[in-house]
């Protein structure tokens, strides 16, 4: 049983990394931080199906590995700030259990962008807060899309682990 869990987590990390790579090939609309967050599908899936500790592990390892493989130095700091804040928010919201998986994803998307802005404020000064409204908007939009896919997966996939 334990081996199966380890294998599942490894598969989740691999899948999250591939999704990150696929996303890096999608042209950016020109505003830093605006993106879909495909890898979050895996994190939400893990959060609902494996547990919050597993989701944290998958998300942080994914950030580390993807930054090492495809990113530049700065991208690690932005990603880790976004991922940490987003994870904390999603875990809390799921625990409250009053909202669906789509809302968890929306909050995750918005908090991810908020975390990146906070890191940008630390690294580059206060001026970057002007991006915040656009990034909240894009976080909500991406969160709904990612949340819908995640909801389907969580609903349909039976792990029997």
């Amino acid at each position: 049983m334990k081996t199966k869990r380890i294998a599942l987590m490894a598969m989740c990390i691999a899948l999250a990394m591939i999704l990150s790579y696929v996303e890096s090939q999608i042209p950016s609309p020109g505003i830093p931080g605006v993106k879909l967050g495909l890898a979050n599908i895996v994190v939400i899936f893990a959060l609902y199906k494996l547990g919050w500790k597993e989701a944290v592990g998958i998300s942080l390892l994914r950030v580390l590995l993807v930054s090492l493989l495809f990113g530049h130095v700065a991208s690690f700091f932005y990603s880790i700030a976004g991922a940490a804040l987003s994870l904390a928010g999603m875990i809390l919201l799921k625990r409250i259990d009053k909202l669906s998986c789509v809302a968890v994803s929306v909050l995750g998307g918005v908090l991810h962008n908020l975390g990146q802005i906070l890191m940008a404020v630390v690294l580059m000064g206060r001026n970057v807060v002007y991006y915040l409204p656009v990034l909240i908007l894009s976080g909500v939009a991406a969160g709904v899309a990612i949340g819908a896919v995640s909801a389907l997966l969580v609903h349909r996939v039976d792990l029997q682990a």
């Binding site: 009053k98 909202l99 809302a103 409204p133 656009v134 909240i136």
Partner: peptide, 18 residues
């Protein structure tokens, strides 16, 4: 019930952005 709460959260976030 969750769907209604979801919409409230999304509306609140959009309001904050606005």
């Amino acid at each position: 019930k969750k769907l209604r709460n979801d919409l409230i959260l999304i509306a609140a976030l959009l309001l904050i952005a606005g």
